[in-house]
């Protein structure tokens, strides 16, 4: 009995002292990776940073929408790239259910929308206005879309609502979804050869801006609720009658048990902050230089020690 009391007391002291003394749990921190390169490299950068601090890290490849549910349940520990346009909705839904928290916001500003490489402008000089784009829809026609123009969207799991946008704005386009980001780049590269006009889904920060100069299409400006409330936006009875947010956030999310289980790692995570240029650089190491994500992360860390070292202290 005495022994037990002693143990309990010990445990209580430990618990009280926790904020100061606590060591990170030896369980691995689980970092989810998705299907675009910057996120994989960034995950590896932060993962290797944690490993440098003595933590063990595991990577799991997960779906980029389902991941918020996984974080809520503690199956995954954190998410380094919460894009407002793509995942804001899933993230907010998870926040409401609880179990996940908004840890930090990157300096980087994100934008994801319809995008075209510069040579397209020659065929359709009115760009970047969306109505001008719609007027030269036939220039974007492909065999499979017939008369209509083709818009090459991202993988369906990015849930971009492009088809809804086409419908709401009455555009003369058909949305074709690529199965992966790489398929997008393959199509742009193919179009570059004979300067075929092409309009695809793209985002910033991304390596693509460096390789193929281009611009986003200007849709009616985003306003909050445009995706849920028909009254918002120019068309009174349609949702999605607007572009995506032009300066969206890029956040870091984490399981709300992380700060207790891995307090040191959590403290470091709060300081993690990347810029557009850094993120594009990471993507480029993989997408252009063809490195493995692990190696790309190691290389980036070597070159940018001044950036991440302070976060660990």
């Amino acid at each position: 009995m005495q022994k037990l009391t002693g143990l309990l007391l010990g445990a209580a002291t430990l618990a009280l002292a926790a904020p100061v003394l606590a060591e990170d749990s030896s369980d691995p921190i689980i970092i989810p990776t998705h299907n675009w390169s910057s996120q994989i490299v960034m995950s590896n950068v932060v993962g290797q940073m944690f490993e440098g601090m003595g933590n063990s890290v595991e990577y799991v490849s997960t779906d980029s929408q389902a991941v918020y549910e996984a974080i809520r349940l503690g199956d995954a520990t954190l998410e380094l790239e919460v894009w407002e346009g793509a995942f804001g909705k899933s993230f907010n839904a998870a926040l409401e259910k609880g179990g996940i928290e908004d840890v930090a916001t990157h300096q980087a500003i994100t934008r994801e929308d319809w995008w075209y490489p510069m040579w397209t402008k020659e065929a359709c000089p009115g760009l970047p206005d969306w109505q001008a784009l719609n007027d030269c829809a036939a220039k974007f026609a492909t065999p499979e879309t017939g008369e209509k123009g083709r818009f090459l969207g991202g993988p369906v799991d990015w849930l971009k609502h492009d088809a809804e946008k086409v419908d709401a704005l009455g555009m003369n386009f058909t949305v074709v979804n690529a199965g992966s980001a790489a398929a997008l780049w393959a199509e742009i590269a193919a179009a570059e050869k004979d300067k075929t006009p092409i309009v695809v889904f793209n985002w910033t920060p991304n390596f693509a801006e460096a390789v193929w100069p281009g611009e986003f299409v200007n849709f009616p400006a985003w306003e909050a609720g445009c995706d849920t409330d028909p009254a918002k936006g120019p068309i009174p009875d349609k949702t999605f009658d607007c572009g995506n947010p032009a300066n969206g956030y890029l956040k870091i999310a984490a399981w709300d048990g992380m700060k207790d289980k891995w307090p040191k790692a959590y403290a470091a995570l709060q300081k993690v902050n990347f810029t557009n240029a850094q993120i594009a650089e990471m993507a480029k190491l993989v997408d252009v230089d063809g490195m493995e994500p692990e190696d790309a992360a190691a290389e980036w860390m070597q070159a940018n020690e001044a950036v991440w070292k302070p976060w660990t202290e």
């Binding site: 675009w36 799991v60 490849s61 997960t62 992966s180 980001a181 997408d287």
Partner: peptide, 20 residues
């Protein structure tokens, strides 16, 4: 690998996404 199973499948999936 589509539901986070690591290993050969996940590597292959990443390679598919990068068309390597």
């Amino acid at each position: 690998s589509f539901i986070g199973m690591p290993g050969l499948g996940q590597k292959l999936l990443q390679l598919l996404q990068a068309l390597k």
